[in-house]
Every structure is written in structure tokens, then in C-alpha cells.
């Protein structure tokens, strides 16, 4: 049997909102250690890697490893039926055809059950090589979302250049261009407002706006985002999910033709 319970469905609601633009379906790998998802978008340009540790759940039981193929659109619809304060329980039997989502209101007076058919999926796992990144930038997630949104008006791609001085985002298009520079914060009153740059070597990479704008749907999950970059390798854009895990997005760069 598989059963995982969260006291508040808000986290799972936010996770679904953070992946639904990129994925139509995904396999949820459930084991003793927790729930993992690794899935690429249809174009194989981006990859979502989600990790929810079993110890982060209020209750977690997984008698045997399960691979459950889920339709993300349906799952999103189901999660939207839960109030943020509802308790959510995921339940499946061994060799399941279905997964059950159970929402219980705080006062325990409303109990909702949604059963979703699982799908068989061809899995394509990619081995992500261990990489030491030339630049690792931590910055407020809302600021990153704002920059991606603002610069998307000017072009299809954003060039991110990171140096000791700071991080610069540039977009150029037919109607003009724009750039935004962020300096490392000298003194941040609050940790979550800080811009921190850990640089070994300067990096300059270009990425498609449309994927970045999908990644920033994870902004409600965490006040800070971590961007890891090296020359000519995919960007890693990471959001912590409370004490339970993280979501990482990988994005293949655009390179000179």
C-alpha cells in the first residue's frame, strides 16, 4: 500500500501549478525515501525534477516501490478542488490502476475523494551529470519572476551574464532591447531579499523566455531561487519546497548557429 498525507494541500497545489505548463504527463516514483518525478517537456528542451522526501510528509507509507503515470492536467484539476488548508492524502494499492486523492477540511466536516486513472508511460530517464557550476546565484524568486516577465516583452530569449560585479539579464528584439543588472547585496536585512553570487568563472548564456516564464510559476513555493550556470550546459533553476524537498528545472541553452 502507498499512503502519503500532508496537513495542508497548499504545497501540493503549488507544486502542480509549477509543473502544469511544462508537463502533460509524468511518472511519480514512490519509494520508502519519498516521491520523485523526472520528466521533460515534449520538445525535450526543459526537464522538471521534483523531490518530496518521505520525512516531510505528516504520514508516509510505501510498502513497495511504485511507478505511477499521472496526467498532470487531471491532477491539477483535482488539486484545484482542495482548499489550501485541507489535509490531503494520496492513496494507492499495490499494482494500482488508480490513485485516490482525499481532501479533509480543517473542521473534519467535509471529506472529498477523487479517483484518478493512472496511465502507462514510456519512461525516458536522463542521467544528469554531476556538475560543478561556474556561477551560482541566489536571489529573491519574485524578482526573478518579474525580470523574466518584463524582459519577455522585448525578445524571445534572455541572455544571463554573471560576473563578480553582479548578474545581468538582457533581451533584444525588433523593437528595442532591455537589460537589468542586479548587484550582489552588501547587506540584506532579510535573508530572503538577498542577492548572493558565488562565482568561479564569468558565464554568459542565452535561454528561451517561454521556459523561464514557466519555471517562475514555482515562485509561490519559495522566497528565493537558485540559478546554477556553467558555459554551454543547461541552466538549473531550483526552488526549495519548505522542509519537504525541492523542484529543479533544467533548461538547455540557445547556442550560436
Amino acid at each position: 500500500m502507498f499512503e502519503a498525507r500532508l496537513a495542508q494541500s497548499a504545497i501540493l497545489k503549488k507544486v502542480l501549478e509549477a509543473v502544469k505548463d511544462l508537463l502533460t504527463e509524468a511518472t511519480f516514483e514512490c519509494s520508502d525515501s519519498g516521491i520523485q518525478v523526472q520528466a521533460m517537456d515534449n520538445a525535450h528542451v526543459s526537464l522538471v525534477s521534483l523531490n518530496l522526501r518521505s520525512d516531510g510528509f505528516d504520514k508516509y507509507r510505501c510498502d513497495r516501490n511504485l511507478s505511477m503515470g499521472m496526467n498532470i492536467g487531471t491532477m491539477t484539476k483535482i488539486l484545484r478542488c482542495a482548499s489550501s488548508e485541507d489535509t490531503v492524502t494520496l492513496r494507492a494499492w499495490d499494482n494500482p490502476d488508480n490513485i485516490i486523492f482525499i481532501f479533509e477540511s480543517q473542521n473534519k466536516e467535509k471529506l472529498s475523494e477523487y479517483e484518478m486513472k493512472l496511465i502507462n508511460m514510456d519512461q525516458e530517464h536522463l542521467g544528469i551529470p554531476e556538475t560543478v557550476y561556474s556561477c551560482v546565484v541566489k536571489m529573491p524568486s519574485q524578482e526573478f519572476a518579474r525580470i523574466c516577465k518584463d524582459l519577455s516583452q522585448f525578445g524571445e530569449a534572455i541572455t544571463i551574464a554573471c560576473s563578480k560585479e553582479g548578474i545581468k539579464f538582457t533581451a533584444a528584439g525588433d523593437y528595442g532591447n532591455a537589460n537589468i543588472k542586479l548587484a550582489q547585496t552588501a547587506e540584506a536585512d532579510k535573508e530572503e531579499e538577498a542577492v548572493i553570487i558565488d562565482m568561479q568563472e564569468p558565464v554568459k548564456l542565452t535561454f528561451a523566455c517561454r521556459y523561464l516564464n514557466s519555471f517562475v510559476k514555482a515562485t509561490p513555493l519559495c522566497a528565493q531561487v537558485k540559478l546554477s550556470m556553467s558555459g554551454d550546459v543547461p541552466l538549473v533553476c531550483e526552488y526549495q519546497i519548505g522542509d519537504i524537498g525541492h523542484i529543479r528545472y533544467y533548461l538547455a541553452p540557445k547556442i550560436d548557429d
Binding site: 520538445a43 536522463l126 551529470p129 543547461p234 547556442i255 550560436d256 548557429d257
Partner: peptide
Amino acid sequence: AKKQTTLKYFFKKS
């Protein structure tokens, strides 16, 4: 012009 790469170019199937 820049060309969009895919992840398969960087990551190997496992």
C-alpha cells in the same frame, strides 16, 4: 541567430 539545443545533447539516457 541562436539555435535552441535539447537536453539530450547534454544528458545521456540512463
